[in-house]
């Protein structure tokens, strides 16, 4: 594990107590998020990836193991240190149609985290919101301030959500399926934006997805999650080109490929 990791999971487990006994949602996972690096977490629904996302932002706390942020166990944070953690680790959600308040203007949406954290006066907040919008490639930022979410495309809405996450100048972004609700034609733009933010601002990004085909051009490292555990973890290209675990191979084989000839091989063409 690189020494300069900003967020580090050490054998983290999360078990929920249910009526029928304990349910292990996450079982002993270890990884590190590093500035300028993208860590992909691939899993199907029920794999534990959402629990993992909640652990990353301290919405949940581990039942075993430790999560270290800048060397400190986040379970022990409180007061100003916890506030600093909450500023430093920001989440981007799957559905920009649901995660933005439909009645709030873009300007209000993006500057709200500043208000909550008591940062800056009105004029300063406005400037920081504009800068965040432009960092999310909504340019000129000022032109978007008065828009309501319904006036924007899906891709633009997700950029507003990203601007909202950026406005506090975080060190870590946790993106949970950030493009799965977007049109295919808008996905690449958001993926490239995330990569640029990581490269240019030195952010660490945890990218959570069910779709392995999205990780090729974005992620440096990948972990494949199945039933709460990482079944395979390592270099993203290596995992895509030489998957070692049967489950990873199954996931890769399931992905549709935009090649009609491959499909034609097992699909008889109907007579004209």
């Amino acid at each position: 594990m690189p020494a300069d990791a900003i967020l580090r999971f050490e054998a983290v487990a999360k078990t929920y107590v249910a009526r029928r006994g304990a349910v292990a949602a996450v079982t002993g996972v270890s990884f590190a998020l590093t500035p300028q690096r993208v860590f992909g977490i691939v899993g199907q629904s029920g794999s534990g990836k959402s629990t993992l996302a909640n652990l990353l932002v301290r919405e949940e706390t581990p039942t075993a193991g430790r999560i270290l942020f800048d060397g400190a166990d986040i379970a022990t944070l409180h007061g100003p240190a916890l506030k600093a953690f909450r500023r430093a680790v920001q989440m981007i959600f799957q559905d920009p149609f649901a995660s933005l308040n439909p009645r709030l203007s873009v300007g209000r949406t993006v500057s709200e985290p500043l208000l909550i954290h008591g940062l800056g006066d009105r004029a300063a907040r406005r400037l920081r919101a504009i800068a965040a919008l432009e960092a999310a490639e909504l340019r000129p930022g000022a032109a978007f301030l008065d828009n309501l979410p319904h006036q924007l495309s899906g891709g633009q809405r997700q950029r507003v959500a990203i601007a909202r996450a950026l406005v506090l100048e975080p060190k870590v972004l946790v993106a949970d399926e950030p493009v799965s609700m977007l049109d295919v034609s808008a996905r690449a733009g958001v993926i490239q934006l995330l990569r640029r933010l990581v490269d240019e601002r030195g952010l660490a990004l945890a990218f959570i997805t069910h779709d392995l085909s999205l990780i090729g051009t974005l992620c440096d490292e990948v972990a494949v999650m199945h039933r709460g555990a990482f079944v395979e973890q390592g270099d993203a290209r290596a995992i895509l080109t030489r998957p070692q675990h049967a489950y990873t191979r199954e996931l890769i084989a399931a992905i549709p490929v935009p090649d009609p000839r491959r499909a034609a091989a097992d699909q008889p063409r109907s007579p004209p």
Partner: peptide, 15 residues
């Protein structure tokens, strides 16, 4: 714009 899992290095583009 559509990624192809067989070519992980190929960048996808957006419109």
């Amino acid at each position: 714009a559509v990624p192809d899992i067989r070519f992980p290095d190929r960048t996808t583009l957006s419109i």
